[in-house]
């Protein structure tokens, strides 16, 4: 994707080995994160995250739906990611589909947990149920990549976290008790909104192994030097909520464990930074 000369490759690798990357960061430092909430007024919640030249938008839309027969006590949550061709000409037409799907699945794994939807999930699907087995909220989370300069997964994860803390879902009053198979009548309030508890939503930390070292928040130049990468989602308690190993050569199991402990350490700083940025963005939005 990125055409680099031999000299440039050596420069990047040498910099990483000496803990001084080409943009002046250390190996385990993120680029500055800028958060903006409420960017899409017609969504129930939205946020835009900028991480250097990486720019993503996440929006949350809730629609009333019916819970599935297998899990009558749980609402549905879906994550879709779209790579806009503005980010790179190669995403034109169907070009971005492969990456979009990869990111969607990885986010689903990291944020929502498996099919059972219980463990690892940052959002409790049972909180979306209005009438068991009949009415629930379907939560559609859409991510859009506007500009891409590496580390899309972490940025999207952070954007979704910010969008969810920005989300207000209208309060629903069930009009009357209905029996049997009848669909109950519901009233959607346009004044009262329910907020999510987003403290349990994990952040995603992608560790990229270049040579013998790992770095966080790789730019696309650095990503082209990847020997392998692991994305780990970790919540505030330090629990691992999901893990994806992508690309590159195989890794020694002990290295993976080491990478996980490094990611855990990094995630603490990231969560704190992100939470304060989100709070600042929310305050900013209310002011304006």
């Amino acid at each position: 994707m990125v055409g680099l000369s031999v000299g440039e490759k050596h420069f990047i690798q040498g910099g990483i080995a000496q803990d001084l990357r080409s943009d002046g960061r250390k190996r385990l430092t993120y680029r500055p994160i800028y958060v903006e909430t409420g960017v899409i007024p017609q969504a129930h919640g939205s946020a835009r995250i900028r991480l250097g030249a990486t720019d993503v938008i996440a929006s949350v839309k809730a629609e009333l739906g019916k819970p599935s027969a297998l899990q009558p006590d749980k609402g549905k949550i879906a994550i879709y990611v779209d790579c806009s061709p503005t980010a790179a000409p190669m995403f034109e037409g169907r070009g971005g589909e492969e990456l979009s799907t990869e990111l969607s699945v990885a986010l689903q794994r990291c944020l929502l947990g498996g099919k059972s939807g219980s463990a690892g999930s940052g959002i409790d699907p049972s909180s979306l149920v209005i009438v068991e087995g009949k009415v629930c909220w379907d939560l559609y989370i859409d991510g859009l990549v506007i500009s891409s300069d590496g580390n899309l997964l972490d940025a999207l994860g952070a954007a979704i976290k910010a969008a969810l803390s920005n989300t207000g879902i209208p309060k629903v009053n069930v009009a009357s008790e209905t029996s049997g198979d009848e669909q109950p009548e519901v009233n959607i309030s346009d004044e009262e909104f329910l907020q999510f508890d987003t403290s349990g939503i994990p952040v995603i930390v992608t560790l990229t192994k270049v040579g013998r070292h790992y770095i966080v928040d790789a730019t696309s130049e650095e990503e082209s030097q990847i020997s392998s990468a692991i994305s780990i989602s970790i919540n505030r308690k330090g629990h691992i909520c999901g893990l994806t190993k992508r690309g590159g050569a195989g890794l020694d199991p002990s290295i993976i464990l080491d990478m996980i402990s490094v990611a855990k350490h990094v995630s603490e700083q990231l969560i704190n930074k992100l939470d304060s940025e989100i709070a600042a963005a929310e305050a900013n939005e209310e002011e304006s």
Partner: peptide, 19 residues
Amino acid sequence: CEYSMANFSTGDRMRKPKG
């Protein structure tokens, strides 16, 4: 030139077929 609409750009969320 390519024109695309984000899923969240319209009032009701759309699952668009690209192109």
